[in-house]
Each structure stands twice: as C-alpha cells, then as structure tokens.
C-alpha cells in the first residue's frame, strides 16, 4: 500500500500541538521574560534588555552556584559512570543470582528524590553522628552535611547511590549486545580479563557511553529535588567576601530567586543554565560520537 504523507502528517498533529504549546512557546516566552522586570504577578511589565544578565555575573551567590554546579557535575559524572560500569561488569559475569542483583541495584532509582533526600539526611545527621560519638570516631562526629568542603561530595555519593542502577542497565544492555564470539576469541588468544575489558568491551560499548554520559551530565546540571531535601543549600560559607550557601546548586538558586518574586532575574539565570548546558552537552556528544565503532 502506498504511504499517504498527508495522513501520516495528520497523526503527528496532536503530539506536535502539545510540544508546541508546552515546550516551544513557553521557551520563547521565557526568553522574553528574562529581558523584563516582571515579578510574576504584576501586569505592568517593562522591557529592560540585558540588564538582568549583566547583574548576574557580579552577584557572588550566582557565581558560586555556577561554579559549585560545575564541580558537582564533574564529580557526579565520574562517580556514577565508574560505579555503574563496575556494577554492570559484575551483573553480566557468571555470579549466581545476578538477576536479583540487577533488580536490587535498580531499586534506588525508583525512590523519589525527595524521599531519598530525607532518608539520607537522617543517615548523615543522626545515624553516622551517633555512631561516631558512641565509637569515638572523630571524623564522624560532625555531620558531613554541615561541613562546607564535604557537602558537594556527599551529595554526589547520594546521587550515585540513586542513579548508578539506572545507568548500569544501559551498560548491561550494551554488553549483552556484543557477540560472545568476540570475547571468546580473545580468550582463546590468551587475552587477560583486563585486556578484554579495555581493548574489546569498552570500545564496543562506545555508544552506551555516549548516552550514559549525556544523561548523567544533564541530570547533574539540573539537580534539584535531592539538593532541596538533603541539604537545602546549607551550610553557609564565604565566597568573594560574601556569605553564600555552600551547596546551593544552580537549579535551587534559580528556584530561590523565583520564590523571592524576582521572576525575571530567575528566568535570566535559567537562560544562562540552558545555554551552558546546551554547549557542554553538544561538545560531549560530538566527542563521544567520534569514538563509536560500527559493527
């Protein structure tokens, strides 16, 4: 039967309509509002050009959130991918009950970020501190969440605990799609396990790395729910001489700005986040794509 392009197109209309209404149009509205002085409610909106953007780069709290977000992303991408890659090797090896482990490692991903934040907050603030004082282990006695220099690492650990199982599944799927003959041939040729992983497995999995790095990169940049419940931005620290919140990532900084009825300024911050994320992820995907091999 001959395809009818018109009818095919019609079936796209509902989705396109929704996409246009809730993604495309709000996006351009957002761009517009970032250049106004709108407070979220007032009907009297003035166009102020790039003034909001100019102010951003002289405010210490935004600069700090920006830097700390980059640091968090860097730490988090490495943690999540290393841990999930190792887990995927474990659950594709010949250990007993590996399906049980696959499911088990995936479960944390199903817990919402809000709940998870509160659970880990309790573990860090109460359980570990209590353990530290009853066993007289000094470094456990102050909560990791109340130290400005450890809080980002702590957040990355919690995020890894949640997210590694999900990325692991991507790696598992990729490992399973590699023909076993390839690995067996290498084995027969006398390649050691490490050689097989680094020379065959990893190059063959390049497309999985592209996806996984992209997913972890974008979710780390946009991290919000766990940040809000686990640390709420605290503790305070000092940056460029001004008091700032030590773990307030960009998304939370945007949220707090908006909650203080500075909608236009928050929108300008969101535009900056969007542009940076776009550039970074485009570079990442291009670089990764070059490393992919065709079967």
């Amino acid at each position: 039967m001959k395809q009818n392009r018109f009818i095919n197109g019609l079936f796209l209309v509902p989705t396109l309509f929704a996409f246009l209404m809730i993604i495309i149009i709000p996006f351009f509205f957002g761009l517009y509002y970032s250049m106004t002085d709108w407070n979220g409610i007032s009907r009297d909106i003035n166009f102020v050009g790039l003034a909001n953007f100019k102010n951003l780069f002289s405010s210490p709290d935004f600069l700090y959130s920006f830097l700390i977000t980059i640091a968090f992303t860097f730490i988090n991408v490495i943690f999540v991918n290393v841990v999930s890659f190792v887990l995927s090797l474990v659950v594709t090896s010949k250990i007993p009950r590996r399906n049980f482990y696959r499911a088990g490692f995936f479960v944390p991903y199903l817990i919402g970020g809000i709940v998870l934040g509160y659970i880990w907050q309790f573990i860090f603030n109460n359980i570990l501190v209590e353990l530290g004082s009853s066993l007289s282990i000094e470094f456990l006695q102050t909560s990791f969440l109340s130290q400005a220099n450890t809080v980002i690492w702590t957040m990355a650990v919690v995020n890894t605990w949640q997210y590694a199982g999900y990325i692991m599944l991507i790696y598992v799927a990729s490992i399973q799609s590699i023909p076993t003959s390839l690995m067996e041939a290498a084995n027969v040729d006398g390649a050691k396990y490490s050689t097989r992983v680094f020379r065959i497995l990893i190059p063959m999995m390049a497309n999985a790395f592209t996806i996984s790095l992209f997913l972890t990169l974008t979710t780390s940049f946009k991290q919000f729910d766990m940040n809000l419940t686990l640390t709420n931005g605290g503790p305070a620290t000092r940056f460029l001489g001004a008091p700032v919140k030590a773990s307030e990532l960009l998304a939370m900084n945007i949220f707090n700005t908006a909650a203080a009825n500075r909608m236009a300024e928050a929108q300008a911050k969101a535009v900056v986040l969007f542009v940076v994320l776009l550039i970074v992820s485009l570079i990442q995907v291009t670089v990764n794509k070059k490393k992919e091999v065709e079967m």
Partner: peptide, 16 residues
C-alpha cells in the same frame, strides 16, 4: 523587609 531577605541574605550570615 524585601521578599526573600530572611532566607537568602540574612540566613547564610546567621549560619556563618
């Protein structure tokens, strides 16, 4: 006080 002054401005100062 201006909106958000307590949470965003004074909060970190008192915490420090």
């Amino acid at each position: 006080l201006p909106d958000g002054a307590g949470q965003n401005i004074f909060g970190p100062i008192f915490d420090l």
